[in-house]
């Protein structure tokens, strides 16, 4: 996991630092925006300005006035619009309290505010853009292929049924049962925390869509065998056995034992 984290951080951070240096050297904000490649989703000028204002109010205390990063939070230069959207739309940011991992919680910004902040951060340096509607449309995707890809790429952390699992030192891969297709896609392209980045070179767009379809299947499909017990596997089954089932059987035994007296 360390190895993956290191690999994904290096190019981005290096790029971020490089661009940060550019900002300082060039002495101008405009210089940076001009280097923005056309692929990155670009917001309108007013949206970027709104975003900057919101950013300065809510995020700069930790991420720095120019998003250069502080002791309390990493740089966002090069983090990309997708990362901001994912972090804020799942309620992870703004961070409430330092901990092993930023938990998903109540979202405090409106969708247009989140988009404004995303546009602002995207305007600082290129990074993964918010996925388009076509990208996250999984209507034609192959669920079965998605299942295979999910078990290969995601199940080792998020559990086969997407219920989440523990990682080391209090970190965890969260349950995917509430995630929207957009959040899932953004998580894959930005790799929050200990999660690896699944760039298009590792998982092509169609493959990502297949995964979206499979997670959707996990979220929506009814449980053919009855109550699913949280789909947590044998531990939940064992717990149910030793509480409910055993109580019923012992109660029956006691009842029959008493009846004959």
């Amino acid at each position: 996991m360390k190895f993956l984290a290191a690999r994904r951080r290096n190019p981005i951070v290096a790029l971020g630092l490089l661009l940060f240096a550019l900002v300082v050297v060039g002495g101008g904000y405009a210089v940076v925006t001009e280097t923005q490649p056309a692929t990155a989703a670009m917001g309108s000028q007013t949206q970027v300005e709104d975003g900057e204002r919101l950013y300065l109010e809510g995020c700069s205390s930790c991420h720095g006035l120019q998003a250069e990063g502080t002791g309390n939070g990493p740089t966002l230069i090069g983090a990309g619009a997708a990362a901001v959207h994912f972090q804020v739309a799942t309620g992870r940011m703004p961070l409430a309290a330092p901990g092993a991992q930023a938990p998903a919680k109540e979202v405090i910004y409106t969708e247009s505010e989140i988009e404004a902040m995303s546009a602002y951060v995207a305007s600082l340096a290129p990074g993964p853009a918010i996925p388009s509607a076509e990208q996250i449309d999984f209507a034609d995707a192959d669920v079965a292929e998605g299942g295979v890809l999910f078990r290969i790429n995601c199940a080792q952390c998020h559990q086969a049924a997407g219920q989440g699992g523990a990682l080391t030192q209090g970190k965890y891969a969260p349950s995917l049962m509430e995630s929207t297709p957009q959040e899932i896609y953004e998580a894959m392209i930005t790799g929050p925390e200990n999660m690896p980045i699944f760039a298009d070179s590792t998982l092509q767009v169609e493959e990502k869509q297949a995964i979206l379809a499979y997670i959707n299947e996990l979220q929506e499909a009814p449980s053919p065998g009855g109550l699913a017990l949280g789909r947590l596997g044998p531990v939940a089954e064992g717990l149910f056995l030793w509480t409910a089932v055993f109580a019923a059987l012992i109660a029956a035994a006691v009842w029959i034992g008493i009846k004959a007296r």
């Binding site: 290969i152 080792q156 559990q159 989440g164 523990a166 891969a173 947590l232 596997g233 531990v235």
Partner: peptide
Amino acid sequence: DQVSAGTQPDW
């Protein structure tokens, strides 16, 4: 080559 988080045996 696959393994799921939360893999457990029966009780």
